[in-house]
């Protein structure tokens, strides 16, 4: 294996299994992407749960397992995600099992990922395969944080220690603060910061996770209208400054034109009015000059 870095996401993300005959159909009716195209073990997809106003509940990853769908969400959103699905499980044969405490998730970053897992070279983004590693059966899924490709390794919690020790022989484990720094540097949205009910998936640049021809889902009418009539008012951008910045409003010529939603040292992620992007790349955070970089 070549050198790589990895982060233990076990307690940063949550894992929820959906079981029952109607699991795919229900999730398809509740989220933005065409979940109905998931047909067999090994396929995965990202999708956004949205409110009936087209606002974001969370961006979730969905894997089609033999007996269930495995959903991965932020640990802070799992209660909301679970309650949302439960509320809309009415006539459907769907049950939920929270497997967060029984499973682990590790994310691996490398400039040459396919050298680490050559089996994945032919597979599509988000798809996964199962392989034995250190005597453990693990699921390895290709993933992407904006332009940065990565692999997610998911397995039984009891195998986590061995897997981490094995990976540490070849790569470097990064801490959550380093991961947060990486996330911000990639402009990748996170639940509670960029992914909240204050914003819609188009503003959050999640258009790749929206199907515009799958039919109805909760919030579809609003999302489709925003896209068709080009009514998206704000857009996620990266920002930087010569000085440390924090979360708060940003201004241009004395008017509020956006809000910083994530910040670490001199870098951050913000939503800004789209109109301003045609006028300037320089805005103000308090008295500090801040530069806007499109994602």
């Amino acid at each position: 294996m070549d050198s790589f870095s990895f982060i233990d996401l076990t307690s940063i993300n949550a894992r929820l299994k959906l079981c029952g005959e109607d699991k795919v159909d229900l999730l398809d009716r509740l989220s933005t992407n065409d979940i109905s195209t998931l047909k067999e073990h090994g396929q995965g997809m990202s999708t956004v749960l949205t409110t009936n106003k087209g606002r974001i509940i969370d961006l979730i990853k969905v894997y089609f397992l033999e007996d269930s769908l495995l959903l991965i969400s932020d640990i802070k959103s799992i209660s909301k995600v679970s309650e949302w699905i439960e509320f809309y499980t009415i006539m459907e044969d769907v049950t939920q099992i929270n497997v967060s405490d029984d499973t682990f998730q590790i994310r691996i970053f490398s400039d040459d990922l396919y050298n680490i897992f050559p089996e994945h070279q032919e597979s599509k983004m988000d798809d996964f395969f199962v392989q034995d590693l250190c005597g453990a059966k693990i699921t390895i899924a290709s993933n992407k944080m904006n332009q940065k490709q990565c692999f997610d390794v998911i397995g039984e919690k009891s195998d986590k220690k061995n897997i981490i020790e094995f990976l540490a022989n070849f790569g470097t484990q990064i801490e959550s603060s380093q991961f947060e720094n990486l996330r911000i540097s990639l402009g990748y949205p996170k639940f509670g910061n960029e992914l909240t009910e204050d914003f819609n998936p188009l503003e959050a640049l999640l258009i790749d996770h929206i199907s515009f021809n799958k039919g109805c889902y909760i919030g579809q009418e609003v999302v489709a209208r925003l896209n068709t009539y080009d009514k998206v008012q704000r857009q996620l951008v990266q920002i930087s400054s010569n000085h440390p910045i924090g979360i708060g409003e940003i201004e241009f010529e004395g008017k509020t034109v956006g809000i910083i939603t994530s910040a670490m040292q001199n870098n951050g992620i913000a939503y800004v009015n789209k109109k301003i992007l045609n006028e300037t790349t320089q805005v103000k955070y308090g008295s500090l000059d801040v530069e806007i970089h499109p994602i």
Binding site: Y88, I90, M91, E92, C216, I218
Partner: peptide, 11 residues
């Protein structure tokens, strides 16, 4: 009956 989904939430 009613099922989850549809633009407004329940169909």
């Amino acid at each position: 009956g009613v099922k989850g989904g549809g633009c407004s939430g329940l169909t």
